[in-house]
Amino acid sequence: MLLHNLPYDKLEELLPYIDTLILPIGSLTIPKQAADPIGKDLQLVRRVATGVEQQLTGRVFLLPEVIHTNFELPEQFGMAVEILGKYLYESLLSFKQPGFEKIVLLYGNEELSAVIEQTSSKLLEAGLRVMVQPIVWQEGSNETDFDMNVQQIVQNIIDFWQS
């Protein structure tokens, strides 16, 4: 379900069936390949998250994406990854009390891997179950590769439920 599209009374009706939150984490940076648009990673993460949510809609809430920005032009500005990590930890921990015990962190930018893994470990210590899911996207991949990627992530989430 798309959390922000649901009327409040519908939310209460659905809560008993939903135990998993998907949080897409996108990056807004200057692309490494000059030909790529700014925000390519963000678009990819958003598309994959939407594709996954469509297939598992009855058991997941898709949260609005978190966007990390980092530019170097010529001075560096944006958000320190430590702030991203702290924010992720604190906001996700707040979902524990209402009973959302499973969290999927979906991201594409490998530069965020370390902070996302660290946050995941801290959330695990705090009693949440976390699945960290990088999106692997090679240059030259096509729509079929995209669908296979979504399919693989859907299967990983089903395995995560069963583990």
């Binding site: 898709l62 949260l63 920005t69 996700l92």
Partner: peptide, 17 residues
């Protein structure tokens, strides 16, 4: 829900799914 990711979004850029 809204105090979580929503608050952060105000400081970043948001687009609807």
């Amino acid at each position: 829900a809204l105090g979580g990711t929503g608050a952060f979004m105000a400081a970043a850029i948001t687009m609807p799914m």
